[in-house]
């Protein structure tokens, strides 16, 4: 046991050490990406709206007249200190934007992941277990269609059917205005705040608003999970250790459940990590479709205003989130699968 714990600890430390270069590379990419656009952020955001002298003054104040390498080092230093700068268009601290809107995105992405797993894994298991059956074909078709459909399209269809025609769910927003006024902001995650306040009506209201956006974004990932689980299960079911278990007289339902399912689900954890990026990009479109007050909506607004400081800040955070999630996933993987630790 101690040996196992020792290798696990070593693995986690090694994996942590890898985070440093990964973050560094990502930050460099974000910086370059934003600067590839012609001109500097200030001229891009305010050009034509201010006289040239004022523009030059703003540019100097923001430090954009200095050499690129100096700006780059400064950007790195600022990010490490947690300072992401102030937005140009509405002069907010980017970190405030993150705190105020991040919660909504987190809620949406988390709920979408739950939807994707709750739908994708059982459907995939069913499909793999009953390969080439009528149900399997239907499930696979559903997987492809849901994955291929653009998020805003899925969102609009769901809004039309469930909000407009059936009037079951609200079309947009994170909660009704009353809820937003009544719940105190503690964590800036509305669902959590409502729970903390013990306000059942508010929680239900938030969940009610969450259903359609979460399904929209979740459907984006369902197809991936579903097909992955299906293929893995089919492979596991033909696996050598599965046949060996059958030869030992293990009842078929346990062979399927304990040997095939568990092994088929290991890669799902890995893919869950990779899906974070897809979830975040999908969140941007989902939020725009459902008028969801998250980072995605803010990002779209700032992009429209050509506010590159804000855009750079938000992308930086998205990138770091992806790195951190992949770190967590690797650790979880090591806990599940003993072979990973070596």
């Amino acid at each position: 046991m101690s040996r196992t714990a020792g290798t696990l600890r070593r693995y986690v430390l090694q994996r942590l050490a890898l985070v440093v270069p990964m973050v560094f590379i990502l930050l460099t990419f974000v910086f370059l990406l934003v600067r590839v656009a012609p001109g500097d952020p200030v001229s891009a955001a305010l050009g034509g709206r201010l006289p040239p002298e004022a523009l030059a003054q703003r540019r100097a104040a923001a430090g954009y007249d200095r050499p690129l390498i100096v700006q780059y080092l400064e950007y790195l230093g600022n990010v490490l200190r947690g300072d992401l700068g102030r937005t140009i268009s509405d002069n907010r601290a980017v970190s405030d934007v993150l705190v105020e809107n991040g919660g909504a995105t987190l809620t949406l992405a988390g709920a979408a992941l739950v939807v994707a797993l709750l739908a994708g894994i059982p459907l995939g298991l069913y499909s793999g277990r009953h390969r080439d059956s009528f149900g399997d074909v239907g499930v696979r078709l559903f997987g492809i269609v849901s994955y291929a459909a653009p998020v805003f399209f899925t969102g609009l269809i769901l809004q039309l059917v469930f909000a407009v025609w059936l009037d079951l769910f609200p079309t947009s927003g994170q909660a009704s205005p009353i809820t937003q006024v009544r719940v105190d902001e503690i964590t800036h995650i509305l669902l959590l705040d409502a729970l903390l306040a013990g306000n059942v009506d508010a929680v239900l209201d938030v969940v009610h608003h969450l259903v359609l956006p979460a399904i929209t974004l979740g459907l984006l990932c369902v197809g991936v999970f579903l097909r992955l689980v299906r293929v893995n299960l089919i492979q596991s079911l033909q696996g050598d250790y599965v046949e060996a278990a059958r030869a030992r007289g293990i009842p078929e339902r346990y062979v399927v459940r304990r040997h095939a399912f568990r092994n088929a689900l290991v890669p799902v954890v890995t893919v869950m990590g990779l899906q974070t990026a897809l979830l975040l990009s999908g969140a941007i479109l989902t939020e725009a479709t459902f008028n969801w007050p998250g980072l995605g909506s803010e990002l779209v607004d700032y992009l429209n205003n050509r506010d590159y400081v804000a855009v750079q800040g938000i992308i930086t955070v998205f990138a770091v989130v992806v790195v951190v999630v992949s770190l967590l996933i690797d650790i979880v993987n090591a806990l599940i699968d003993p072979r990973v630790r070596y």
Binding site: D240, Y241, A245, N263, I336, R339
Partner: peptide
């Protein structure tokens, strides 16, 4: 029954 390839006959997890 015992099989040909022992490397893959035990559940790796």
């Amino acid at each position: 029954m015992i099989f040909q390839d022992p490397l893959t006959r035990l559940n790796p997890l």
